[in-house]
Design a protein around this nucleic acid. Structure first.
Lengths: 216, 216
DNA sequence: TCTGTTACTGCATGGTGATTCAGTAAAGTC
DNA sequence: GACTTTACTGAATCACCATGCAGTAACAGA
């Protein structure tokens, strides 16, 4: 990361605080995802938005606060998308398949590096641990709801929806580690297949029916 | 972490380089485990051994190098222990059970925080990624060997030992995240049970027979 | 158009902590 | 016991950034 000196623009731009805050949070998460928390400097965030470092501090009192809010923001974003996605599909099978297609580490969700960073940081920072726990909980609740729903309609067979959701979550986390950290040993297709296999077992359906739906 | 000034001792101690290096690596991994890579300062390592910060740099040219070697050392250590443990048990079932008892995140292995830190760091540092990959590989190979062994003796039923080892590894990683980062939602017993359940399914045995053997 | 508020900037400062270096002491060699 | 090698130290140095501050420009309301 080259550190160019801050270059002022002729005319200052000025934005509504909430817009600016969101911009900054988006930039921050992007940088953490690319370079890691270690390497995150306030001046990098500022530079990527063409503003002064002092502005970042103006909106977020400290760097720590910035990081905490960035994770909170990213979590909210992912969860909202999950809920939108699962709301869309007509059947429980479709909902589960769509969720998997997005959130399996082989899927479109780009956020896994961010979460791996987050895990490590949460080991130390109570604030981040709190955020992590809430996200994790909401995620599992959404998943539990989908499973119970499927059990209700007869699509799934599962004695313990909550436990199943928990186990599925754990498996996805573990797959993320394999996919992103030890990447390269297994093909994406095989990993996908295994994820569906484990999930299929949990809810008592053929893994094939969980293949990514056309519309997702 | 209080930062006391370095206090020289009356008489200098002087050790063989390889001993000193190992001491330093042990101290480094302990500190990373307790406080995280972020917080690791060379002077902390030095202080915990009652030596000068300069000595640490004398043995390891830079902080980065120190960290990389610390992970390598810790990995080696864990793998050696795994191999010793699995060599001891008489049956494949016993070996697998023992390995699980140690390396499930609910077990005696204290290193999981270190590895979570390592995953995040490996996302950026190629050296660490390399180390991680090798450990992961050796771990899976040991596991594969145990499984194949069990298949040979008729203790296990498993069409794809390598795949099973991979999946078991992924599940353990995921459990580690749940246990250490989102800790507290599930009891240790239930997590253990689920781990054995998943492993049991993979190798075709009743989870109960994988319960921690008496001697482990 | 004046006035106040809010978003924003440039610059300075201060703490931190890795790395350097010039030297010192223990151990080994002959 | 002189001489070399190796482990080790204390005291700088040096770069780096987060944060503080004193002011400036945009905008809103009257």
């Amino acid at each position: 990361m080259p550190k160019l000196p801050y270059a002022p623009s002729m005319t200052r731009s000025r934005k509504d605080a909430s817009l600016r805050r969101e911009e900054i949070l988006r930039a921050t998460t992007a940088l953490i995802e690319k370079e890691g928390i270690q390497a995150l400097r306030i001046s990098d965030v500022a530079q990527s938005l063409q503003v002064s470092p002092a502005l970042v501090v103006y909106h977020f009192r400290t760097k720590e606060e910035l990081i905490a809010e960035a994770f909170t923001w990213a979590a909210q974003r992912d969860l909202d998308r999950l809920e939108k996605l699962t709301a869309a599909a007509p059947s429980a099978v479709g909902r589960l398949g769509t969720a998997l297609a997005w959130y399996a580490p082989t899927g479109q969700a780009k956020g896994w590096k961010l979460w791996i960073e987050g895990w490590a940081a949460a080991l130390r920072e109570p604030t981040l641990r709190q955020v992590g726990r809430e996200v994790d909980l909401r995620w599992k609740e959404s998943l539990t709801a989908v499973i119970q729903d499927g059990v209700g309609t007869g699509e799934f067979t599962c004695a313990d929806a909550r436990g199943a959701a928990w186990r599925i979550t754990a498996v996805l986390d573990g797959l993320a580690v394999q996919a992103l950290v030890h990447q390269g040993v297994q093909s994406r297709e095989r990993m996908d297949e295994w994820a569906r296999q484990i999930v299929g077992r949990e809810v008592g359906v053929d893994p094939a029916v969980l293949e990514r739906p056309a519309g997702a």
